[in-house]
Design a protein around this nucleic acid. Structure first.
Lengths: 326, 326
DNA sequence: ATGAAAGCGCTAACAG
DNA sequence: CTGTTAGCGCTTTCAT
C-alpha cells in the first residue's frame, strides 16, 4: 500500500490535518512543518492527486487535443505545452483525434470533466460545434479564433504579408499561392494577408486547394509549373516539401526556376533540399501561453475572461527563395 | 455543480448504489437499468473518474514518457498509444522529458502514483536507474530491453541483417556504418546484426558515432565520402536525412555514387530526395501492444508477468539504394 | 497552532 | 434485485 497522510501523521506524531497544512502551506509552526516535511520525505510520501482533487475541485491536470501528433506542427505545440506543464507541475492528458472531428468533440466531452481545462487544436470542426461542446470558462483554442472562446493565435495575416514582400523585394511579380482546406480559419487568414496586395504591382495566382500534406504539395507541383509564376507560397511546410519534391522530379531547379516559400517553419523546414524559406509561427510558445491562460498564470489575462492572444510571426529566409529567372 | 450519482438516483427514484450498479454492470433488473441509463443520459451524467479511482484503486489512466515528441519516431509511438487508448477508453498522461535523463526519472516517480501503469521510452537512462525508479509490475519499456522489466521491442538484429543483405544483393561489398549513441541498447542491437556478416565476402566500415539527429548525419557525410564505401547504413532516418543533405551539397549523387539506407522508416523517409530505403520498425504497434500489456488485454501476457514482446522488422526499399558504381 | 470531524463522489460490502 | 452504510485519501471547517 502507498504511504498516506495517515502514515506520515503517525510517524511524525501529529494529526492528519497538521500534515496536510504543513505540506500545502497552511499555518503551522516552523518546527512542526520542518519535522513533518522531513518525515514525509523519508517515507517517500506523494499526495494522491485524485483524493486531493475530489475535495479541492481541481485536478491539477489539463487536456491537450490535437488532430495528429505526427504532424510536426502539432508535435511542436505539444512540446511547448508539456514543457511548461512540467515547470508548473501540472499533468497533461493528450488526445490525438486522428483528424476526425467527431473524435474531437468526444475528446472535449471526456476531458472537460476530468481536467482543469482544455487546450484545443481543432482546425476542422465548425465554430458552432466547438461552441456547443466546449466550456468557454476553461477552454483555450490554439491557432484558431472562434468568437466566444479564448484563443492563442499567430499573426498569420502579417506573416503572409512578410512572405510576399520578401518575394517582391527579390524581384518576383507573379506569385502562385497553393491554398489549404477551404473554409478554415487558417486559410482565411492567409487569404486576408494576400488581399493586402490587391491592385499592387504584383499578381497573386491562386492555384486551388490541396490537402495540407506532403502529397497535397506533390499534387500542386504540376499545377504550379503550368502557371506563369516565378515563385510560389505554399499553405504550409508540408505542402512546400511536396512541392519541392515534385519540382525536383520535373527537373525544375529551386530557386533558379521557381522560388518556394513555406508556412509554419516546422523542424523539417531546415532539412529539405534546398532548405525552405518559411514563415515562422511560435508554435511551442502558443502552447505554453495557452496553458498559462488556463491556469490563471498569464498575468492579468485568464481563459475565463475570454483572452485573445496574438503572437508575432517572422519570415525565416533559407535557400529555397531567390531572384526570379532573368 | 456537476451532476453526480446522487442527482441521477434522485431523478430516477432509486438509490445511489443502484445507479452505480446499473452503470458499471452490476446485477440490476433490466427495467431499472434502462430507466437509470436514460436518466443519466438525459442529465448528461459523467462519472467522476477521480472519485471512482479513489475506491477501485484504478485510475483508468496511464502515463507515456518520451524523450522528444518532435522526433518523428516518438511521435509515431505516441500515436499508436493514443489510438489504442481511445479505443479502450483509457486516459494518457504524456511527458516529454526533453532528452533529460533526470526529468525522465522524475516523470516515472510522478506518474507511477497517479496512473495504472507507465509506457516508457527511455533510450538514455542506465539500466540500474530504470530498475530503481520503475515498478516492474506496471511499467512497460518500449524499444529497449532491460532484464527485469517488461518490454516491447523490434527485431533490430534481423532488420540490420535485412538491410545489409539488400545492399549485398545489389552488389555492394564495402558498406559504411554510421553509429549512434554509444552504449545504448539500440546501438548494441545494430552492431550485433552487423557482426553476423563477419568473415563474409563483404566489409563493414565503422564510421564512428554521431548524434542521432539530422545534424549528426550532416557531420557523418564527409566522413562517409572519405571512406572507400559504396553504400552506407545510417543509425536512423534522421541521420540518413542529414547524410543525404550533405552528400547532395558535396555533389555526390545518391544512389549512383553511394547508396544510403536508413533505420526506423519514419514518415519523413518517403519525403526525402531521393526517397529513403529504410528498415521499418512497427512503432505504433509497439505502443499499442505495450498499452495492452499494461491493461492485461494482451491475451495471456501481462506486464506484471514480465512479458517480452519482439516485433518483426521489414526493409522498405525506395530510391536511395541501388547498384554500386561500376 | 493544533486536533477532531465532516465530507468531496463514488463503489463495495452487507443486509434485506 | 435493491437500499443502507462504510469508507477510498485528502482538505477544510470548527473547535480548542
Amino acid at each position: 500500500m502507498r504511504t498516506t497522510v495517515q502514515d506520515v501523521a503517525r510517524a511524525a506524531g501529529v494529526s492528519v490535518s497538521t500534515v496536510s497544512r504543513a505540506l500545502t502551506g497552511g499555518s503551522v509552526s516552523p518546527a512542526t512543518r520542518e519535522a513533518v516535511v522531513a518525515v514525509a520525505h523519508r517515507l517517500g510520501y506523494q499526495p494522491n492527486r485524485a483524493a486531493r482533487g475530489l475535495i479541492t475541485g481541481r485536478t491539477g491536470n489539463l487536456g491537450l487535443i490535437v488532430p495528429d501528433l505526427r504532424n510536426p506542427f502539432f508535435a511542436d505545440v505539444a512540446k511547448g505545452v508539456t514543457a511548461r506543464a512540467r515547470a508548473v507541475d501540472c499533468g497533461v492528458f493528450i488526445s490525438d483525434t486522428d483528424e476526425d472531428p467527431v473524435a474531437e468533440l468526444e475528446a472535449i466531452a471526456t476531458l472537460r470533466h476530468n481536467t482543469d481545462g482544455i487546450l484545443l487544436c481543432s482546425p476542422r470542426a465548425k465554430d458552432a460545434e466547438l461552441l456547443a461542446a466546449a466550456d468557454p470558462q476553461n477552454t483555450v483554442l490554439l491557432h484558431r479564433r472562434v468568437p466566444g472562446l479564448s484563443s492563442v493565435v499567430a499573426d498569420i495575416v502579417d506573416g503572409t504579408r512578410q512572405a510576399v514582400q520578401h518575394l517582391r523585394a527579390l524581384g518576383h511579380r507573379r506569385i502562385a499561392y497553393v491554398s489549404g482546406p477551404e473554409d478554415s480559419w487558417a486559410t482565411r487568414q492567409r487569404l486576408a494577408g494576400l488581399a493586402t496586395f490587391d491592385g499592387d504591382d504584383l499578381e497573386i495566382l491562386p492555384i486551388g486547394s490541396v490537402a495540407p500534406t506532403f502529397d497535397g504539395g506533390v499534387l500542386a507541383g504540376d499545377l504550379v509549373l503550368a502557371a506563369p509564376a516565378t515563385a510560389v507560397l505554399a499553405y504550409n511546410d508540408l505542402v512546400a516539401m511536396g512541392l519541392l519534391h515534385r519540382l525536383a522530379a520535373r527537373g525544375a531547379v529551386v530557386p533558379d526556376r521557381l522560388s518556394v516559400v513555406g508556412y509554419d517553419d516546422v523542424s523539417l523546414a531546415g532539412m529539405s533540399h534546398p532548405p525552405l524559406t518559411s514563415v515562422s509561427v511560435p508554435k511551442d510558445r502558443a502552447g505554453a501561453i495557452g496553458l498559462d491562460l488556463l491556469l490563471g498564470r498569464a498575468g492579468s489575462m485568464t481563459a475565463a475572461q475570454g483572452a485573445e492572444v496574438i503572437l508575432p510571426t517572422t519570415l525565416v529566409v533559407r535557400a529555397s527563395s531567390g531572384e526570379p529567372p532573368a
